[in-house]
Amino acid sequence: MTILPKTPSRAAREAAAVVQRSSTSLTLRRLVRDPASLVSMLVIVLIFAFALAAPLIAELTGHGPTEQFRETGLSPAGIPVAPNSEFLLGTDQLGRDMLVRLAYGAQISLLVGVVASLFAAGIGITVGLTAGFFGGATDTVLSRVMDLVMSIPFLLCAIALVSVLGPSLTLSIAVIVFFSWTGLGRVIRGQVLALKHREFVEAARSLGASGFSIMYRDVLPNLIVPILIYTTLMIPSAIVFEATLSFLGLGIVPPTPSWGGMLADAANNSLYLVAWWMVIVPGTALLVTTLSFNLLGDGLRDALDPTSARGGK
């Protein structure tokens, strides 16, 4: 290889060899380089696959999610059987297959976690954006409303509400949404307050853009980072909230499988003291799921906001 003199054209070609990367690809590269984020993403994908495969698992094992195997799934004394070749993760107090129930329970957990977080994020963004952007009386009223919701003993109110209206999937989601939007709302409001006096907002205004246009076309896109992080971190809280409601018998109605409900079955009469898998199976599933989302949320924060202290607040 001959050594070429450094001509202007070569310098230009070399400069071009420095790949121009978009912000998204830079973020993705940072995210992929963090082993914790990578593993947690992989685990989340696996959990989704597990949930989607629930009917398939039921088909393969030949066990329905609410089917009771009183002959093979219970000991002669009526005690659940430990994990074995027929019931890979053991059975519960009615001789139902834990593996199949776990997979169907994953559907509920993910559904509630994701749907509730998306709705809560939607409300939080709208309220925070409106309060921060319009300021004045609007801000005062909306901020007080957020203070108000945060001053409610939420679990007490949630169980009172559910006990009166009757437990259901929709009500669980509604309750979770109602009590989870304020955190994001406050963050967004704070960010908007900081953003609205920046030059690009001034510029948009001087170009004659309307308030709404500035709010949605100029301010909102700048809030993607906190929105993404907070929504991701809301998912595990929503999943635990749903599991707590189901654990207290106020969430998903049995016999529909849910992780919280499976744990409630285990706690009932302290059955788990003789059948440890009844706690370990759904408990591990719950822990692994929330842990993965929390790790991913942290990883996202580090990747999207390199200036923040690693694993910061």
């Binding site: 595990p236 707590t244 744990l263 302290s270 003291l273 706690v279 408990g283 822990l287 842990l291 929390n294």
Partner: peptide, 17 residues
């Protein structure tokens, strides 16, 4: 991060067990 992710009732039951 493990503490934040651990649902209280699961930890309680594991502790009791």
């Amino acid at each position: 991060i493990i503490g934040i992710s651990f649902p209280t009732f699961v930890l309680g039951m594991v502790a009791l067990y």
